[in-house]
Design a binder for these strands. Structure first.
Lengths: 235, 235
DNA sequence: CAACCGGCAATACACACGTATAGCATCCAA
DNA sequence: TTGGATGCTATACGTGTGTATTGCCGGTTG
């Protein structure tokens, strides 16, 4: 049997050599990073000559841009329901992503820390979605346009995307490939556990002390960069 | 004034050319990644010849290993209080890290996704710390050695380290360098907000529905996997 | 048939990289 | 003074890289 879900349910024009090259590039860029990946490696993985890679994509950067736009388009096509509405369907979105193309998921994970301009768009999209969710669900805590909402949304996006970006370490630690479809729910449940537990901690005395300490520390530094007398050891 | 906190409070032997090369390598590896960084670039940044880099570190991989061990030692020296005890002094640990050497922080952030073997150790250390914290604070929810505790600890480590690994996107979105010492408290406060809010969401009807859906989905897919049946709702 | 054009391979080229080697000061013990 | 270490530079070498060039082959069009 040939490799499954490699060219799963894609239109037939995607089975051309050009598409094979793009898929190979997605995999190579994801596994080795842009700098370490070579055009000859991509050509070999795609089973074509290196000349054909240039014929279709011109330069190495052109190949990367093609991968970026392909990933962006695929993501946009999956954004149709749920995410665009500002719902927190993160796990559901990922589940669909797992099924559709783990290749793109791995590529995104690498691009996020590989200097790709598309990665910034992806992160900002996640942060924007989170911000809509936060301001809609708790308008009093996160007033629309406030710094508090913006900060929380950015941090929340980072925390969620961490499960993708750090999938290698996460998988090693959990003993399973967290980018495999059958394990998507496992991360979601663990995130629920972390959220509820850490909220308990935040509401506890020590949690409140830490938060207050951070608040006063922030007030001290926001005026002048010098560290105030604070540092109040939280036992 | 010369660049501050570049060779801040380090022993005098660190001001040798060898140390300057190491610092330049830390910066170059962090900014460009291992593959894209060049020995000539490191030599230029350190103000020495490329031959001296080889004289001190032999090969490029030797230079990377030297950076890894230096980062590891620095981390270990900061682990003295708080973290080793299993406390969740994450923000405090980071605050000290910010002050001591933002250089190493940036290096760690890159190494985490650049295939460095040290990065695995760093992640595992964070996950182990989190696991101790979870099992100590909520022993009934996270029994020591259970899959549930291990999963939650790994995800929690990933979520916390995300603020470092994704510092570039986070900083762009928040309009400030999140790896700067004066902003360390800001992330901590945002994380508190996210935790409390998402815990509310997890406790809501839709949150419970999502969790139950994930549970049944997971039961459907994990035939061989054994998770203790004693998961059920902890009120 | 002839001209042509896109898919594709083979090869050549210039360059930057990591690495190896040789040399030059300075210092310090014998 | 001699003679090696030591810190450091300069330069050469081989290789792998991205890219450019050339040409072949099959199908379409005039």
């Amino acid at each position: 049997m040939d490799p499954v879900n490699k060219h799963g349910d894609r239109p037939p024009e995607d089975l051309t050599a050009r598409a094979r090259i793009r898929d190979a590039a997605l995999a190579q860029f994801a596994e080795r990073g842009y700098a370490a990946a070579t055009l000859r490696g991509v050509a070999d993985a795609a089973g074509v000559s290196i000349g054909l890679v240039q014929h279709h994509f011109g330069t190495k950067d052109g190949l990367r841009r093609a991968c970026d736009t392909y990933a962006t388009d695929t993501l946009a096509s999956l954004d149709g329901l749920g995410v665009a509405g500002g719902e927190i369907t993160d796990s559901d979105f990922l589940a669909r992503m797992f099924r559709h193309s783990p290749l793109i998921l791995r590529y995104i994970a690498r691009a996020m820390v590989d200097g790709s301009p598309t990665a910034a768009t992806f992160f900002d999209s996640g942060a924007a979605t989170a911000e809509v969710f936060l301001t809609r669900t708790w308008p009093e805590r996160f007033p629309p346009g406030s710094d508090r909402a913006r900060d929380a949304a950015a941090v929340m996006a980072a925390m969620h995307q961490a499960t993708i970006v750090l999938h290698e370490h996460l998988s090693r630690r959990m003993g399973a490939d967290v980018l495999a479809a059958e394990n998507s729910a496992r991360i979601g449940l663990a995130m629920f556990d972390v959220y509820t537990s850490m909220a308990d901690f935040a509401a506890s005395d020590t949690g409140a002390a830490i938060r207050d300490g951070a608040r006063t520390y922030q007030r001290g530094t926001s005026a002048a960069q010098q560290n105030g007398p604070g540092d109040d050891r939280d036992h």
